[in-house]
Design a protein around this nucleic acid. Sequence first.
DNA 1: CTGTATTGGGAAAGCGCATTCCCACTGCAT
DNA 2: ATGCAGTGGGAATGCGCTTTCCCAATACAG
Lengths: 367, 367
Amino acid sequence: MAASTLTEVARLAGVSPATASRVLNGSARKPGQDIADRVRQAADSLGYIPNAQAQGLAKSSSGLIGLIVHDIADPYFAAIARGVQEAAREQGRMVLLATTAGAPGDEKEAVAAFAARRADSIVIAGSRSSRTEDTDGNADLAAELDRYCRNGGQVAVVGHPVVGAAVSDGYHVVEVPNEELAASLASELSVSRAGDDFVIIGGPEGLFTSDDRIRGFQQGLAEAGRPPAEILRSSFNRAGGFEAGLTLAARIKASRPEAGGVGATGNIGGSKGLCIFAVNDVMAIGAAAALRSEGLRIPRDATIAGFDDIETLRDFRPALSTVHLPLEEIGRIATRSAAGSAAADGAAAPSPVTGRVTLRRSTETAS
Amino acid sequence: MAASTLTEVARLAGVSPATASRVLNGSARKPGQDIADRVRQAADSLGYIPNAQAQGLAKSSSGLIGLIVHDIADPYFAAIARGVQEAAREQGRMVLLATTAGAPGDEKEAVAAFAARRADSIVIAGSRSSRTEDTDGNADLAAELDRYCRNGGQVAVVGHPVVGAAVSDGYHVVEVPNEELAASLASELSVSRAGDDFVIIGGPEGLFTSDDRIRGFQQGLAEAGRPPAEILRSSFNRAGGFEAGLTLAARIKASRPEAGGVGATGNIGGSKGLCIFAVNDVMAIGAAAALRSEGLRIPRDATIAGFDDIETLRDFRPALSTVHLPLEEIGRIATRSAAGSAAADGAAAPSPVTGRVTLRRSTETAS
DNA sequence: CTGTATTGGGAAAGCGCATTCCCACTGCAT
DNA sequence: ATGCAGTGGGAATGCGCTTTCCCAATACAG
């Protein structure tokens, strides 16, 4: 038994396919009550399920939203995905998922695949890159997005615009005030960690999110009359944070006075403490793990702050200072901005993303 | 400019649409080299992207895999989703996401939506329920799945079969040895926590995953000559674990000898320790948070073990004893078993899921 | 040199639905 | 009684592609 079709339903109800279509799938014209009932009854006696592909073909729209993330199991993206999913549901659409590990080439593939499926809109999360090795991929991606938009597609990008993407209507960017927030964080830490040296653990140069946060942090330090922090670069994930954490651990151990044995109380006397800013939470967690694995304690031997306030932090100890970002909300906003283009443009501008510096135990003064 | 069509490509190349179709999208018949080149060139000069909807309509298959989870931001599901996504990619398919919070009614909707989109296969993760309030939903879901399978769809369910689902080919269950593993855990803990009382934090009665693990654990205890553990039930998430944790915390505090003040060293003298088994990691984490919030320490004042070994545990302190499950692999297996039905049935049976009891600090003897 | 395979391309018929026309019919004003 | 707008249903077309069927051309054996 193959899935039953509209035609079969129509025949059973003794009406034309046109009429059946009108009653079963919202049309401007509403057939008479009695006929409608007959059709509806026929439909569910047959267990009719409309073929979305055929509907899509006929209407040239699909009820699909494409979502591009680096890694769906990363708590950062998972939270955004949850928001996207939720907003999609509100719109009566479904989410198509693509993971790309951040490679622009793969992202281009994903966009093409979404375009092939005639997705109504595409949400791209994950940091944009301007690294030279990504130049080609970025160009391809931009071209693909451009084509998609010209064909009526809607695109929302979280954070930074895609490098080289033409500004068309249908192309939306959800701005995240990374720089300002990082500056605020630096400013607050300059006060609470007045005696410390600062060091930044960043992602590879060219990753916008990372670069913005680094720039903001440095600026915040400067405004507080502090010298710029040293920057350690590694990959934009836990492993990268861990690696950088090991480097810092060695340095901390080397610089502290050879007081006693293992149990020595870290940072005493005149030596300055170290305050680490990792440009995202997973890197911060990685760094913290590295310090711990080297026998160092936070905030005793070093303090540390992250960025994003991913849900995982809730149960991470010591409680990690960070910048809270409404990740789920960001997903919703992106999804809505790529959908509500029907509404008035300027007026319907979705509320901007706001974050909040959130200081916790990991940067409290060691007792 | 609307997206260009196969017909346009064909015209530009000076061939028939049929030929163009044959060269651009894999067909059994391979047109001549020169013609193929001409078509291909025409295609990318036009930036042709095949309309997957139309292809799907014509071939009646869509290259889509439906994935149903409770919550995509839950680390357990996120890990499975990653595996599914990966396997989907291998198959050249895309994954369609649906989140349902575990409500069978919603799951039925999701299956219907997947069916409407003519998804090639559906993967259902998340515990099945036999609670009475879910009876209707389960029946609907089973009926919907049945119809989907009869129409040639492939379904893979992680863990338990859907209640009432007819066994058809096309309906696969990825077995997870919850009961055995829970028994092993109980057995190992009976040794390492020889002096302790055991208590189980479980989900609501009727959730198969929870029930299986509880049953297994009790059985393991029995085999070790222990009396059955008391069971505390609450919701199958962190909040549920937290709630149960509060209850236990009160009990622990009440039962311990009024040694001194807050700083008293918990469990001394003849009073038995408490070993908590939470049926999944997020509940265990919730319970641990509750204990901590009540000033109790793990493993000093109580020990605790979870189940699943979600990635989050990597950075959770104290390191949580648990049962490792290859979550990502489970996602892959499910996806493959719902795809490789073309291969020989019996022979192609995917490798079964195996777990591993993993004891860590949270159940180590307090020093 | 004729006859039969065989190859390679094109014409056309759907896949299941939405939608534009078109037509028969009703109700009302003239 | 006649005309007209308005209403409600059906026939037909097309969305973009695959695929079967058909036909011309070539190849080869007899």
